[in-house]
Simulated assay, not measured.
Amino acid sequence: MVETKTLPNTDDGLRRAAETLRDGGLVAFPTETVYGLGADATNDRAVARIYEAKGRPSFNPLIVHCADLEDVKALVKWNHLAQAAAEAFWPGPLTMVLPLRVDTMISRLVTAGLDTLAVRIPAGDTAQRLLRAFGGPVAAPSANTSGQISPTRAGHVVDDLSGRIEAVVDGGPCTVGVESTILGLAGTPTLLRPGGITLEQLNETLGTRVSERRATDKISAPGQIRSHYAPRARVRLNAAEFEDGEARLGFGDIDCDLNLSKAEDLVEAAANLFEFLHRLDATGAPVIAISPIPHIGLGVAINDRLSRAAADR
């Protein structure tokens, strides 16, 4: 075990976090989506420790976070569709999967043996400051045990990964609350994972129809394992009514234990999703029953996370 330190969101705290990354340590930090578990993306041993700390299958690739566009272009083969998406959505909750440049120092453990790389530029101020202090690419999946609920607060990370990572930067709660949209641009433009940027937004920005990944497709990007984001409790979806003994997660004007958004605001619901799942799971209830969520806009990403949380394990 290692001592896990909580670092403040200050210049000194971020300097210490960057030094830890340079020394091969693991540092959890907030992005606008969820807390990421960061390691030097060029250090094989450090990246291997991400898999160890999370208990993550080695065939599941990682997202690399960069401070700016020039850093991204040094890692992947760029194209006009990537440029259009970057101009519209970066910094922000969009990850692009592009062909990996052969002259990069990125660890092959990051790509899980694929010839593509998932990259993004996060919008969160803390993430940006840490990336600039570190001065290189940082591999960072969500900072939680693989398959379990993603963290949106520093306390979630400490409760889950304390003793397995060196540090957590406490930058407060995340604003988006669900992971980034993943757009595949190594061939036909494909939505590989729904998230904070919707399919409709991608279609409009790129001026072309973006395909959707099929359930039978091989894993080509992070976050595609069927059982994922799962609490200890069993999850029951589309609960029109709640049953005795269940923890009740509502949406809209409904009597429940916690309400994702009484006003039926999908942005508010996404921001609350993982935090509320953490709270209800902590009650020890055997089942978390969840109200129906509209399958439109950001609701597509919310339902994607919930269907994975409810999948057989």
Rank of each mutant, 00 (worst) to 15 (best):
L14Q: 02
R15K: 13
E19Y: 01
D23K: 14
D23P: 00
D23I: 00
F29P: 03
F29Q: 12
E32P: 12
T33C: 04
V34H: 07
V34E: 02
L37P: 06
D44C: 09
A46S: 15
A48F: 02
A48N: 11
A53R: 04
P57Y: 11
I63A: 01
I63M: 06
D68P: 01
E70F: 11
V72Q: 01
W78V: 09
W78L: 07
H80T: 14
H80E: 14
L81I: 00
A85M: 04
A88L: 13
P91D: 02
G92R: 08
V97R: 06
L100Y: 04
R108N: 14
L117F: 10
L117V: 08
A118R: 07
V119P: 03
L130H: 07
A133P: 04
A140I: 04
S142T: 12
I149Q: 01
R153D: 06
R153C: 07
A154I: 09
V158L: 14
D159I: 00
D159W: 01
I165R: 08
V168F: 03
V169I: 14
D170G: 11
L183N: 03
L199K: 04
S211F: 14
R213Y: 12
K218Y: 03
I219C: 02
I225F: 12
I225E: 08
I225S: 04
I225Y: 13
I225K: 12
A230R: 12
P231N: 11
R232D: 12
R232Y: 08
L237V: 05
A239I: 02
E241I: 14
G245L: 10
E246I: 07
C256A: 14
N259S: 11
L266K: 13
E268Y: 00
L273H: 09
L277R: 07
L277N: 05
H278Y: 14
D281K: 00
A282S: 15
T283P: 04
T283R: 05
T283I: 01
P286E: 01
S291Q: 02
P294D: 08
I296H: 12
L298K: 13
L298G: 00
G299V: 07
G299T: 11
I302Q: 07
I302W: 05
L306W: 10
